[in-house]
């Protein structure tokens, strides 16, 4: 994306996740009771409804579930079309993430993709996606 990134408005649940991402660690939460992996960060497991959890680093790998090519300049400075992808994580099938596309050609439905970190500054990194392998 060519526009200046909008800084995320983090909250008390999400701030530790963004701190890990800034260190280029890709993590989701793992429920200590039932093992369900979840994203985005919050206190309670949506499956067993208990509040004990730990971070679990996973491979930033998933499959393309859908994508768009955004043309309308919704953001100040977004002059060129850019691609936003929706990715379902391979190690955490209940978790989906969004990001920008770093492939040469357009993404394909079901394509295996890998995330990479783009450092905005010391406090913020974003995760973008491109073809895996």
């Amino acid at each position: 994306m060519s526009a200046e990134a909008i800084r995320p408005v983090t909250d008390r649940d999400s701030a530790p996740w963004w701190e890990r991402t800034a260190r280029h660690e890709f993590a989701v939460q793992e429920c200590e009771t039932c093992g369900t992996l979840r994203f985005p960060a919050r206190a309670y497991c949506h499956r067993c409804r208990t509040p004990r959890w730990r971070w679990r680093q996973i491979e930033p790998v998933g499959r393309i579930e859908s994508w768009i090519v955004s043309h309308q300049p919704f953001l100040p400075g977004a002059r060129e079309p850019y691609v936003v992808v929706r990715v379902r994580l391979a190690e955490a099938l209940e978790c989906v993430v969004y990001g920008n596309w770093r492939g040469d050609g357009p993404p394909e439905d079901g394509q295996l993709v890998r995330g990479s970190f783009t450092a905005v500054d010391e406090a913020l990194s974003l995760v973008d996606w491109g073809p895996a392998g």
Binding site: M1, A3, A5, I6, R7, P8, V9, T10, D11, D13, S14, P40, R42, I68, S70, Q72, F74, L75, A78, Y82, V84, V97, Y98, G99, N100, L124, L126
Partner: peptide, 17 residues
């Protein structure tokens, strides 16, 4: 929604998108 923070940095902000 808390989801916005994970989308807006990628320019994914508007209902048409």
């Amino acid at each position: 929604s808390p989801e916005v923070q994970y989308q807006a940095p990628y320019g994914y902000v508007a209902p048409p998108q």
